[in-house]
Design a protein around this nucleic acid. Structure first.
Length: 127
DNA sequence: CCTGTGACCGAAG
DNA sequence: TCTTCGGCCACAG
């Protein structure tokens, strides 16, 4: 029997992504696929990227550290907007994240692991 | 209601 | 190493 897995995405999906991204502390990074996996399915990585692309819209009400999200190769993907990429790199370096000569981040060193995989309705206040 | 836009991942050859 | 392909939906106007 094939067990159809429920779609992880749905109304408010962006909000979940933002909430997850906000949990990444300074000096650490996470990948699109990682966020997607934590949200329930590694296949929605693209959806995460889409959501993140519009993160600036949410920044109006809640700052989203979108710059801490990079691709699976440890590189920065800004899909054409190079200026944004440079900005992202600058922001990460400012937090202490070092970039290798090839412009990528050592994920084995900076990748952040989430303490849990649940999504509390109430925002977690660090500290 | 319909359309356009959008920052990925992993596997295979 | 490179290319190709399947997966996949919210949001704004």
């Amino acid at each position: 029997m094939t067990v159809e897995e429920p779609r992880v995405v749905g109304p408010g999906f962006h909000a979940k992504v933002y909430a997850m991204v906000r949990r990444v502390p300074p000096g650490h990074v996470a990948t699109y696929g990682q966020i997607a996996t934590l949200l329930g399915s590694p296949r929605v990585a693209r959806q995460v990227g889409f959501a993140l692309a519009g993160a600036w819209r949410a920044e109006a009400t809640n700052p989203v550290p979108w710059h801490r999200i990079i691709n699976a190769k440890g590189g920065i993907s800004t899909r054409g907007d190079v200026g944004l990429g440079l900005d992202q790199r600058a922001l990460l370096e400012d937090e202490g994240v070092e970039f290798k000569a090839n412009g990528t981040v050592d994920l084995s060193r900076y990748r952040w692991h989430f303490p849990d995989v649940e999504f509390p309705d109430d925002p977690v206040d660090p500290g």
